[in-house]
Amino acid sequence: MRGTHRVALTGLSTISGIALLLALKPHHADQPPLSSPEPDSGGGHGGSAPSASGGTRTGTFTGDAVQTKYGPVQVRATLDKGRLTAVKVLKTPSDNEKDRSIAADAVPKLTKEALAAGGAQVHAVSGASYTSDGYARSLQSALDKADSGKHGASRPAQQGAGSGQSTTGRGGGRP
């Protein structure tokens, strides 16, 4: 019996310790981990869709280089009268073979999704959540530029996620 009690006690204290660690972390999305494709955090992206299709701009717009945990992601969007027709990926994490292979796997899926959606509302590709998040944000910044009428990428990056002090357009401010 004592053995069983000890096992139960050890298990419970381990679980509560891990839960405590997780609970102590911030739970809002102003940082890039685990791009969350759920509707709750998709508000920012959703709001941008009309702007992409509603605008009349034509041309290529380079998005911000979004810093993710594994490296920068940057895309260039091509719009034809406000319609997203192509996404060219300029930068993905490529520090090592693993990053390259993950990106190579994820990028075509993301582009397919983005073109189908006509905007930056892409679901995270499993196993490439950081890259997916960076992709969505870089694309969003390109579309924002198209809206505001600026070609190219001369604007300072709004989405400096790497600094930890980012001010993304997503909802969910600090409580």
């Binding site: 891990i18 972390k25 739970h27 999305a29 981990p33 945990k69």
Partner: peptide, 26 residues
């Protein structure tokens, strides 16, 4: 080792974040 995880983890998002976080810690 826990400190390593703590330093590398900016936030924990949603149920998936909790599960993945627990998976990383364990």
């Amino acid at each position: 080792v826990l400190g390593l995880w703590w330093a590398d983890t900016p936030s924990v998002l949603g149920a998936a974040g909790w599960l993945t976080g627990a998976g990383r810690i364990t």
